[in-house]
Design a protein around this nucleic acid. Structure first.
Length: 416
RNA sequence: GCGGUCGUAGCUCAGGUGGUAGAGCGCCAGGUUGUGGUCUUGGAUGUCGCGGGUUCGAGUCCCGUCGAUCGCCCCA
């Protein structure tokens, strides 16, 4: 035997219960988002590298050190998508849809980041994603958040999850705030953690979000964005909170939410939980008003979120909400002589919409064992005398009871 | 990219101070000639993650490596 090949670091197979949880998350999101008028798109899982380098910001961690980038055989610079939003904006422009806005888009699929794996963090993982493209109204922000909240409710996991919202302001607000933060932290540079001294150069906003105890003491007295908001930014922020109330979505304000991707402005939010270890964000996003322009389209103010399917699935598991496997009916010929008739019976049941299995070999005992192990709900047993009389033994595998049923009445009997 | 812990049958795990591997579950076969789940009898299974080193001898000690896991960073 050849040596066993291992799965690539940070990748996982989805099988059995794991697949069912994963599928439940995506199906629920698909159904609820459709209810809210979102239309599903599927864009490529790899794009021209520039889609992400331009879109997410060259200095962001995702772009600078986490992308799976390579040259294809034609020499093109290609990147496996590390998130969904940039590709969706590119698709909007490529398909000439920028003039058909607003558009409400749902998407789901794999994304890739070269990171150190950890609980709730993989190199290939899956996201569900919701975007409203081409609406500057705070109502759009609230709608996207509210729909996300309803997806979580529908999944049954909203108990342990809380919504935190913040405003990053518009560009003038943020510029002013940024300068004030740099001034403040530079004055206390030596008291900052090593990480935060580095952040001071790269992304001072992130210091606000530091977990370091020393940093937090400083952050407590740091300026807040409140004082730097323009009238417009303040109006957006006020309206968002009013609309969330109107949608009936509970939320808290958290000025420490800054988000890692450069394209956000105004609204930033996260649904967080303490049930997943260090990776507490289960759904996160915000408003991005410049991204479509980066893709070569017209100014298209937009808002959206991405959510980790694996993380949501972990919450399903923790909540004992793993979907049950479907229970089939097993058709069992007693001997080879009844095999063809059994095949016909199985076919008729499937035709009637009843999930049916029929094994490829084995005697009655063996097939009964198989049916039991597979969690079948019933066994339809066909022997010589049954076939001769046009009936089957229908055995209820839970109750252990057995009755004779005419073959032409089987489907109706099993449907109820 | 940094630090901690871990890696033995399909699964969960046991294997004092080094002497070439065990349990439970599962799997296979029988007790039942046309009936599963309970019971019972018997059976198979491992390059002890991988590579190297120390040793007469390593699952057990040392080094490296791969992977998992927890935290940092970052994020979904």
């Amino acid at each position: 035997m050849a040596t066993k090949l291992q799965p690539v670091r940070g990748t996982h197979d989805l099988i059995g219960e794991g697949f069912r949880r994963h599928h439940r998350v995506i199906e629920t999101a698909r159904r609820v988002s459709a209810l809210w008028g979102f239309e599903e798109w599927a864009t490529p899982i790899f794009e021209d590298t520039r889609v992400f380098s331009r879109g997410l910001g060259e200095t962001s961690d995702v772009v600078s050190k986490e992308m799976y980038s390579f040259q294809d055989r034609g020499g093109e610079g290609i990147t496996l998508r590390p998130e969904m939003t940039a590709g969706i904006c590119r698709a909007l422009v490529s398909n000439g849809l920028a003039q058909s806005v607003p558009l409400k888009v749902f998407a789901a699929g794999p994304v890739f980041r070269y990171e150190r794996p950890q609980a709730g963090r993989q190199r290939q993982f899956h996201q569900i994603d919701l975007e409203i493209l081409g609406s500057a109204e705070p109502l759009a922000d609230a709608e996207v958040i509210a729909c996300g909240w309803h997806i979580q409710r529908e999944l049954g996991i909203s108990e342990g999850v809380t919504l935190e919202v913040n405003t990053l302001g518009d560009t003038p607000s943020r510029e002013g705030y940024r300068s004030a933060l740099i001034a403040y932290f530079t004055a206390h540079r030596d008291a900052l953690s090593e990480d935060s001294q580095r952040r001071l150069e790269k992304n001072p906003l992130r210091i606000i979000d530091s977990k370091d105890a020393k940093d937090r003491a400083l952050v407590a007295d740091a300026p807040t964005i409140e004082a730097f908001l323009t009238d417009e930014a303040r109006a957006h922020w006020d309206a968002l909170r009013r609309h969330l109330d109107a949608f009936g979505v509970p939320f808290g304000e958290n000025p420490r939410i800054v988000r890692g991707l450069d394209y956000y402005s105004h609204t930033a939010f996260e649904f967080v939980t303490d049930r997943l270890g260090a990776q507490g964000t289960v759904m996160g996003g915000g408003r991005y008003n410049g991204l479509v322009e980066e893709m070569g389209g017209p100014a298209t103010p937009s808002v959206g979120w991405g959510a980790g399917v694996e993380r949501l699935a972990m919450l399903l598991e923790a909540g004992g909400l793993t979907p049950l496997a479907p229970r089939l009916v097993h058709v069992i010929p007693v001997s080879a002589a009844e095999e063809e008739e059994a095949l016909r019976v199985a076919g008729a049941l499937r035709e009637a919409g009843i999930a049916t299995e029929m094994g490829h070999k084995g005697n009655l005992k063996r097939r009964m064992e198989r049916a039991n192990k597979a969690g079948a709900r019933a066994a339809v047993i066909l022997g010589e005398s049954e076939v001769a009389r046009g009936i089957a033994q229908l055995r209820d595998l839970d109750a252990g009871t057995q009755e004779e049923v005419a073959l032409d009445g089987l489907a109706a009997r099993l449907a109820r």
